[in-house]
Design a protein around this nucleic acid. Structure first.
Lengths: 173, 173
DNA sequence: TGCAAATAATTGGCACAGCAAGTATAACCG
DNA sequence: CGGTTATACTTGCTGTGCCAATTATTTGCA
């Protein structure tokens, strides 16, 4: 039974690697689906949810430095997937949106991994789903990451760390 | 009960993000523990297990292109953590090993995330461990990643993909 | 009002990761 | 021998990611 534990633990590691490789590392670094890299796809996905968003907010949601996001946006803009529009009321801010092409990519892209996962989870028997949920819960607990912000993905709200409260801007069109 | 499923699924996503963020993104890109980047730490860890290893084998174990590994080794060598020794018998191969300093780093570093996980899993009650294992197993199944090579981490053997059967090399000192 | 401070996005510089193609050397095999 | 294969390395390129300025704009305060 000692060896059974060992085997289980080893399997957990292997599977965790696999999951990570698929979900996050689906585009390890180089170009991937549709010629988009991981971060680019990620930005597209965030944009597809957060409507027109300011560069700094996008950076916050992606947990990246603003200057990094600028670079990513440059490349996405060059591909014609996003547009930058200077805000009328505050001429400092830039609102980033998806173009039609960008929306198409966004609509097709989540199927890559997250969509796969979502579909799979949805058709999972209730008991198995509970097992998956419980298992991950335990993992997160072990890693002491329960207090960590989920980093947004399909959820709407963002807990920005450290930063002040986001001004309640009714930027809704 | 529909909403319970939804909540469970949402939680799975959030927790998955958390786990990924911790395990993989522990060293997002920039320098981290002891001034080492993620891939550098990873290489060190592989080296700490696989004794003297050839560059090509290291690349295979890290699932990286050999030229990428060369760069990583250059930086590790510059820091005095690894040494490259040309094999006497086959003058093409280079055996990479850890220096004393490198071993120290290796011994201290796995505590970063994987070690945390390992320790946590080890003290987990048998039942919970089975839940974690089963949950991940299901996830991997959903993602169709069961056939994917585990990418090695703590396990010894490597299933090199695509490549032919590894010649039964008795390079055991 | 008018000037200082804060804010937003960007730029430039740097290091690293990752790959592909090409090079040099060395081993193997007919 | 001579050609093929294997091994490591080099070079060139793209892309991330950060920090430290810079610029433009807005806000705040005296």
């Amino acid at each position: 039974m000692e060896s059974e534990r060992k085997k289980l633990i080893g399997g957990v590691f292997d599977n965790l690697r696999r999951v990570i490789q698929v979900v996050h590392g689906y585009s390890n670094r180089a170009q991937r689906v549709g010629g988009l890299t991981g971060p680019q796809l990620w930005a597209i996905r965030v944009l597809s949810e957060s409507a027109p968003v300011r560069v700094s907010d996008l950076a916050r949601q992606m947990y990246l430095h603003p200057s990094t996001v600028v670079g990513i946006l440059d490349r996405l803009e060059a591909k014609g997937l996003v547009v930058r529009i200077r805000s009328k009321r505050d001429h400092r801010v830039v609102e980033v949106s998806l173009t039609g092409k960008g929306k198409t990519v966004a609509a097709r892209s989540p199927a890559v991994a997250q969509g796969l996962l979502l579909k799979g989870l949805e058709k999972l028997p209730g008991n198995d789903l509970r097992v998956v949920s419980g298992g991950l819960e335990a993992l997160v607990g072990i890693l002491g990451a329960r207090t960590m912000p989920p980093r947004l993905l399909f959820s709407r709200e963002v807990n920005l760390p450290g930063g002040g409260v986001p001004v309640g801007r009714d930027r809704k069109h």
